[in-house]
Amino acid sequence: MNRDESGLTLVEVLATLTIFAIVSVIIWSVFFQGYNFSQKAISKNQMQQETNLLITNLLKIHQSAKQYNIINTSSNCEITVNITNKDNSTRTEIFNHSNMCFKFEIKNAITNPVVPNRAGNDVQLKLTTSDKKDPNNKIAIDTFLYRVKGVKYQ
């Protein structure tokens, strides 16, 4: 027999494949963990933007309406606002999103319907926005709906 033969034994090949598989699984899991974190961060950013838009719209309603009634429709994750304008006309605005669920809680002693003209009728709201796909991915924002004294709102 020739002792100068070079090559790999079956044990060396199996050991190499095992080490390669372990390293590949670790790299793969780190990649997907980073991807999932990135998706959750993107979702939180979108929820923050949608909640800020909702707050802006509710503030406009609070500053321009004679009175309004705000309703939580939890079955389809939307907020409905029934508005009575200064000319006594009424309209309804519905705030919803295809991927997000909106909920609110009035934190102070204001009752529905809200009459913003009365003194001390600033509304303290806690708005919660959650992802419909992952309800644990949510944000909550405490905010005030207010009117500035001395300003003539239209």
Rank of each mutant, 00 (worst) to 15 (best):
M1I: 07
R3L: 05
L10Q: 02
V11K: 08
V13D: 00
V13S: 00
L14K: 04
A15V: 06
T16Q: 02
T18F: 09
I19H: 03
V23C: 05
V23G: 01
I26H: 01
I27F: 08
I27S: 05
I27Y: 06
G34R: 02
F37D: 07
I42S: 00
S43R: 03
M47L: 05
N52M: 12
L53H: 10
L53T: 07
L53V: 09
L54N: 01
L54T: 02
T56Q: 09
N57A: 14
L59M: 11
L59R: 15
I61T: 07
H62I: 10
Q63C: 10
Q63H: 04
S64V: 14
A65L: 11
K66N: 09
Q67F: 08
Y68N: 03
I71H: 04
S74T: 09
S74L: 11
N76K: 08
E78M: 13
T80H: 06
T80V: 13
N82K: 13
I83G: 12
T84F: 09
T84S: 09
N85K: 07
D87L: 14
N88F: 07
S89L: 09
E93S: 00
F95D: 01
N96Y: 10
N96K: 10
M100P: 00
K103D: 12
F104D: 03
E105D: 06
I106P: 01
I106Q: 01
T111W: 08
N112E: 15
N112V: 14
N112K: 15
V114R: 12
V114E: 11
V115M: 11
N117C: 13
N117S: 15
R118V: 15
A119H: 05
A119Q: 08
D122V: 03
D122C: 00
Q124K: 13
K126Y: 07
K126N: 07
L127G: 02
T128S: 09
T128Q: 08
T129G: 06
D131K: 06
K133I: 11
K133P: 02
D134A: 13
N136G: 15
K138C: 02
I139S: 00
I139Y: 00
D142V: 15
D142L: 15
F144G: 04
L145Q: 08
Y146M: 07
R147M: 14
R147F: 14
R147A: 12
Y153A: 02
